[in-house]
């Protein structure tokens, strides 16, 4: 088992290297653009890394990203943004896990219901909600109906539904992200269970007289554990992508604001650091999902 774990760690290390190289390549390609601050700045990834390690945040980004007037180092700004974004991400995943798997399994269980497709259609609609649009509408709703400061850089709340300031801010960013992710996850799980229900061993059990919940939970659900576990990390890239946009739309001081404001002002250091952090998180999540799946009973992981 230790040998297997070490092997998995080596795989993780190789994946880190591959993905970091890919991020650097994307940023390099972006830097060969026709006019970046008046000149092409290609081939400067190492200078950017040095700037990230020792330099300060450019003046045009300081106020937007850190909310302070004085110079802030890249590392401090990155640490602060990452922490803020991880809180949102954790909250969104928590909400997604509270609803997604339950609704997904229920949808799989009642897949033969005549109204199955109609019942799933709201989730299809939710999966395609433009999160940044929902964030704007949520901000407007707060101001219009609760008289509260809408954007995250507004004044602190003094009452109403915003008594616990940070929790409210975090939820407001996390909920549009989670809503979209729930839609995706439910459809993914329902589809997986539907495909598993057509497997030969399920048909064999059915022909022997087994049916209903027993057949579903014993043969369909158990054998779909691998894709069900992987549905969490597989939905993460789209979820994080949407989170970048929602954070910026809401002016939340997270990685999304840092990355998008950096892109708007052609600060490739912000893009490189954001890309490296996000890809690292995704590789780790993918690795955890894969490694967890290897410890499942053989028959479950074989599907």
């Amino acid at each position: 088992m230790i040998a297997q774990l070490l092997q998995r760690l080596l795989v993780l290390l190789l994946r880190f290297l591959a993905v970091w190289l890919l991020v650097a390549l994307v940023v390099e390609i972006a830097m060969t653009g026709p006019r970046v601050r008046g000149e092409a700045v290609g081939g400067q990834t190492m200078e950017i890394v040095r700037e990230l390690a020792t330099g300060n945040l450019p003046t045009d980004l300081v106020a937007v990203v850190s909310g302070e007037a004085t110079g802030v180092s890249w590392l401090a700004a990155l640490g602060k943004s990452t922490l803020a974004s991880f809180t949102v991400c954790a909250f969104a995943i928590l909400v997604m896990l509270s609803f997604g798997p339950v609704f997904g399994v229920l949808a799989g269980r009642y897949r033969r219901h005549p109204w199955f497709e109609a019942m799933l259609s709201p989730l299809l609609a939710a999966a395609w909600l433009p999160g940044f649009w929902i964030a704007s509408l949520a901000v407007w709703w707060q101001v219009e109906h609760w008289g509260m400061p809408g954007f995250a850089d507004g004044e602190a709340a003094t009452g109403g539904p915003m008594r616990i300031e940070w929790l409210w801010r975090t939820s407001l960013v996390a909920l549009p992200v989670a809503l979209v992710a729930i839609g995706w996850q439910v459809r993914f799980i329902a589809g997986t269970l539907r495909r598993s229900a057509g497997a030969t061993h399920v048909l064999a059990a059915y022909s022997r007289g087994m049916g209903g919940g027993r057949l579903f939970y014993r043969h369909v659900f158990r054998n779909s554990l691998y894709p069900l576990i992987r549905s969490i990390d597989r939905s993460l890239p789209a979820m994080l992508g949407m989170q970048l946009l929602v954070e910026w739309a809401f002016r939340y001081p997270g990685l999304g604001t840092l990355v998008i404001e950096s892109a708007r002002s052609s600060q490739f250091a912000g893009l490189l650091s954001g890309g490296l952090l996000i890809s690292t998180l995704l590789v780790v999540a993918h690795w955890v999902g894969e490694t967890t799946a290897t410890f499942l009973p053989q028959r479950a992981s074989a599907i």
Binding site: R15, A18, V19, L22, V23, V26, V27, I29, A30, M31, T32, G33, P34, V36, P237, A238, L240, G241, M242, L244, L245, V259, I260, S262, A263, R264, S266, F268, L271, G274, G275, I278, S279, L282, V283, H286
Partner: peptide, 19 residues
């Protein structure tokens, strides 16, 4: 490997340099 980077991040990064 491409899936380990959100597609929207790649779009935004490339557009930052090329318009």
């Amino acid at each position: 490997w491409g899936a380990a980077i959100p597609a929207i991040f790649m779009v935004l990064t490339l557009a930052a340099g090329h318009g």
